[in-house]
Nucleic acid binder design. Sequence first.
DNA 1: GCCCAGGTATAAA
DNA 2: TTTATACATGGG
Length: 276
Amino acid sequence: MQRLSQGAHLRLLLPKTELDLAVTFDCGQCFRFLPQPNGEFLGVAHGRILRLKQTETEILLYDMTEQEFLDCWQAWFDLSTGYADILAALTRSDETLQKAVAFSPGIHILRQEPFEALVSFLISQNNNIPRIRSSIERLCERFGKALDGAYAFPDPQTLAGCQVSDLAGLGLGYRDEYLLDCARRIATGSLPLEDCFTLPLEQARALLRTIRGVGPKVADCVLLFGFHRMDAFPIDTWMKKILAAAYPQGLPPEFLQYGGLAQQYLFRYARWGSRS
DNA sequence: GCCCAGGTATAAA
DNA sequence: TTTATACATGGG
């Protein structure tokens, strides 16, 4: 992938079929990156505002040095993973997945920050995406560092110092206690969250499920989106239907390694692709 | 008003 | 071990 500095901006020569920002941001893995009326994308991660524009052949990152890209955003966008090979393996003998990938190619699993992923998917339970977004945004406005026109995601330490009453008005509902519980345990160091990068899948799941409000679905979302564990496989209400219809004899073996990526494609296809 | 939303904790069978 | 129910809250 070629990189070109253009004034204060950085241009990536990268076909949209390889990384499609609209699809990647909209497939339910992240909640803070939204398309703007002018066609650009705006979001916040790693304590900075990211402004982007994509064409069929390139991505423009505004106010980005090459060094900053290499230090942080190359990894965040997961541009070093060989998606072509993974998708080839996944779709080799799977017609359902072939259709799903053909419908909207270019999904990457972003390497989001673990704490942000954990909090986001704690909030996501029994909730809908617009409401999840607004809750997260208000949480950042109230407790995150002010940036130029947006707010960073708050630290565990900041949230650990809160009371339930401090969270009123964010729309968290009963999930407010879950959030405080996990922020406190992380802030005190009693929950070694970073271990989820290296622990065997089942042990990482077990660790996350010691957090109140983290069940099987949320745990796998956190592993997939916060720790880039493509062997995690979040099963939600949609996936239950999809799996019953498409894989009555059980999951293809490739899903053991890359089920998380397969899940993203299947989820999107089921929701938006198979309408009449 | 009623139903639902990328579920989970809890109690009961 | 599997199956029901409550859960806060806003949008359709």
